[in-house]
Amino acid sequence: MNKSVSQTKDIDWWFGMALSLLMGVAALLLLLIIVFLTNEAWPVLQGGSWAQFFNADGWYPLENKLGLLPMLWATLAVSFGALILALPLGLGSAIFIEYYAPKFIGKPFSSVVTLLAGIPSVVFGLWGLTKLVPLINNIHPPGASLLAAVLVLALMILPTITLTSRSALSSLPSHLLQNSAALALSKKSMIIGVLIPSALRGIIGGVLLALVRAVGETMAVLMVAGNVVQTPTGLFDPVRVLTANIALEMAYATDNHRAALFASGLLLMILVFCVAWIASRLSSGETNGYD
């Protein structure tokens, strides 16, 4: 016998109804994105023909060769390259702000980092294109290369890593600090041995967030990477990533070519989904406190 339901249609009922309508429209719109992308990509997905993305030798849309692999490798190389560079710098800055910086440096430093997180990607691209690429060109032409993309992207995701690591570190209980100080640990051993491991989940979460941003970044990479479709073999090779490919070819693509671009959009979504899933697994593990 359930007696906890009130059937009167009062103001709450009507207001809740109106809100759920809005939510319905929003959810439909968002669902539509997924459905529509799949629908547009369908010509190249149906009947197992999606396998060509991974079999075809290269991306020659006019000859109907739609191999995405070189660009997928380029995407991964650029993203992980940027991450490898940004992780020590970002984490180091977080440690700097939390434990080393005198107050009059730490506070402005962290607010500058916060503001940098909002700098438009096209500005990073502009800077990379006009300053960094000529510089790399002096060392090893052509300049627009995997390296340039890695450097620019590393700078872009650095604030994300710094800010999330910092908030993970600053939310550690203060007794940790006192305990390890009481054990007469040096500052270095304290940070590396105690504080970083305790904040590891938060830091990894931030790293994954940065990875999502790196995989999805379009403009900055497009502007500095050179955009030649090839599997990267060296730091100075020009490369084209998946996102840039969409931006470059969308305007004139037709038929299967167009469908393949939508399919690569789906592929990006799946990549992001995987990372987000890992992140959510990590954060749900956080609540039960085991392992």
């Binding site: 994105i33 997924i34 671009l261 939508f262 979504m269 990372v275 987000a276």
Partner: peptide, 28 residues
């Protein structure tokens, strides 16, 4: 399930939104 859709879409690259907008709003 609404939350799941939101979480996934919050991470979707902006170029994919551009792709959708191009096909749906401009085209469809």
């Amino acid at each position: 399930s609404t939350r799941l859709i939101l979480d996934v879409l919050a991470g979707v690259p902006s170029i994919v939104f551009g792709l959708f907008g191009y096909a749906f709003f401009c085209g469809f």
